[in-house]
Design a protein around this nucleic acid. Structure first.
Lengths: 317, 317
DNA sequence: ATGCTGATCTGTACGACGTACGCAACTGTA
DNA sequence: TACAGTTGCGTACGTCGTACAGATCAGCAT
């Protein structure tokens, strides 16, 4: 787990910028100079500079050197979600957006587990390593995919009232997860790379919430609760659409394999509620899991719960 | 994506058992015979037989042949969760349970992504391939891990009433996910390998639910809703405990990187609720995500929601 | 024109991974 | 003794993410 050479170089330069030894506008050592000083190949130094550039710490001045950033270099007016992907050159035949799009198509069709950099490259008809010109790593690619997907969220005006707003946000999210089942497996919290588009969308939810005596933390907590609730359900989606047919292990097979064990548990007599459940299912054809049905149940229950507590005074007024 | 040779053999024999050409008690072809007939190595045929045995379709009679299962061979009174892992020889120095335990320790400490068969073997001080004597595949190992973990669920009597029961189940589950953050990433539904222990535990929940006019599907739906709700939150746990320190990207770093973008969104004026949120956070120190707090919020909201609808008549009576 | 700069592209290779398969003992039964 | 099935483990394949090495180029400074 030793750090990669290029990361040492990145850290070194970042530190020099941080403590002022390198100041905005000042020129960095040339690529070849860096390579020689650190005893690495030219490409390694280049990579280090590229990372620094992606972080916005330095700006490359083609044909004349790389300088420390710090003036008016931040407002790049590209379209779409430039927010999370600041730098990355868009010119040339292939763009970052192309890669993200191809990756999303693969993940939609075959799941996140089937997503590979080689696969993306093959789909685009480019050499594998060419993709790394546009995305720093697979992790980053997934983050970009998630941000792009959350960017699809569009709020149609739900009409007045917190309840309609809450419900609209929930349904839009659920529809999004249905379209992109892999999205639920990308955890957006606690290291929340792809949040911007998500937060933007939550306006539908936050708007009606403002000015009701809830502090900011309470408001965002409600949003997070709704998000994780739906995500928990959506995590199951990928398994539903995919693993089932793939392994040839159908629901019936599973029942054949585990049915006796379950019956044995029921037969102990120590679990009457469970036994009653099994009995009822045996009588009328078993349980069919329908995630949409559970979604409706959950959404309704949450709404009713909020109506009874957080918004209790609201609706009476 | 051609099927492995041993799987063809498995399918062949399973079919012959299914349609009656091989009947319970009857002897299977010898390992070497199978190998010759199918043109494969001895070990391949052995593997096929091992799989059939794990499925419980056949029983090996050491030193005299393998016979089709079907009599009184199912009640092995081993302790713990024999339910999901029926056969797999426990004798010898290393047992399946040892492997599962080691794997759980690794996953607890380093996350599911860091779990590898080589790692488990190394931890146990055995050659990598030796583990495959006891678990069919990594996928199976993870299923066994999940079943074992769900087996830790123990219902302490919550006292009377559906609300106390519901709350107790929720808290026990949440505590379990806190202990085993990786568990939330194992999807137990739709191909529900590890369900038995989970269902058994849900007795606490199902008991008070019986005899209230809810049909079996509605009862299980409630259980599934609670489970996925908590799982959705728990999915975030792994990221919280691990990725953060590992990559050296702290919350503050993230704010440094994305803060301006968020401020820009707020500044557009098109998202007043979001802007208000940002304003409040700027005033009092920002949002600190606390999953336990969200858990309490979610649990309370769900309980209130159920009280208002499903159990509305109940509490008034 | 001749070095130099950084930029671009792509091929090669490394160290992980899961696991199929081979093979050499071994242990009892016939 | 011959053969059954079993055990244990080494080797090797195909996959992955991606570091790194060149090769090549375009334009600036001299």
């Amino acid at each position: 787990m030793t750090v990669a050479p290029y990361q040492r170089i990145v850290a070194d330069i970042a530190e020099r910028i941080a403590d002022g030894r390198l100041r905005p506008g000042e020129r960095l050592p040339a690529t070849r100079r860096l390579a020689r000083d650190h005893g690495v190949a030219l490409a390694t130094a280049t990579k280090a500079l590229a990372v620094l550039q992606q972080r916005g710490l330095v700006v490359a001045k083609p044909r004349s050197g790389t300088v420390v950033a710090g003036g008016s270099t931040l407002t790049a007016p590209g379209g779409g979600s430039t927010v999370t992907a600041p730098a990355m050159v868009p010119r040339g035949p292939m763009t970052t957006a192309d890669i993200v799009r191809a990756a999303i198509e693969i993940a939609d069709a075959e799941g996140l587990a089937a997503l590979s950099m080689r696969g993306v490259a093959a789909k685009l008809g480019v050499p594998t390593m060419s993709t790394y010109r546009h995305v720093e790593s697979k992790e980053r690619l997934v983050a970009l995919m998630a941000d792009t997907a959350y960017g699809e969220l569009e709020a149609d005006d739900p009409g007045p009232g917190w309840r309609a707003a809450f419900e609209a946000v929930g349904r839009t999210l659920w529809a999004l997860y249905r379209r992109h089942p892999w999205l639920a497996h990308v955890t957006p919290l606690t290291r929340p790379l792809p949040l911007p588009n998500l937060l933007r969308h939550s306006e539908t939810f936050l708007g009606p919430l403002a000015g009701r005596g809830l502090d900011a933390t309470a408001r965002l907590d409600l949003q997070v609760m709704l998000l994780t609730h739906i995500q928990g359900l959506a995590v199951q989606l990928e398994a539903e659409t995919q693993a089932q047919a793939a392994t040839g292990l159908s629901e019936d097979d599973w029942m054949d394999e585990h049915g006796p064990a379950l019956a044995a548990i029921a037969a102990t007599g120590r679990y009457p509620g469970f036994a009653a459940l099994m009995g009822d299912f045996a009588a009328d054809g078993g349980y069919e899991l329908d995630l949409d049905r559970i979604f409706e149940l959950g959404l309704r229950t949450l709404l009713d719960g909020l109506a009874a507590t957080v918004f209790a005074d609201q609706d009476r007024a």
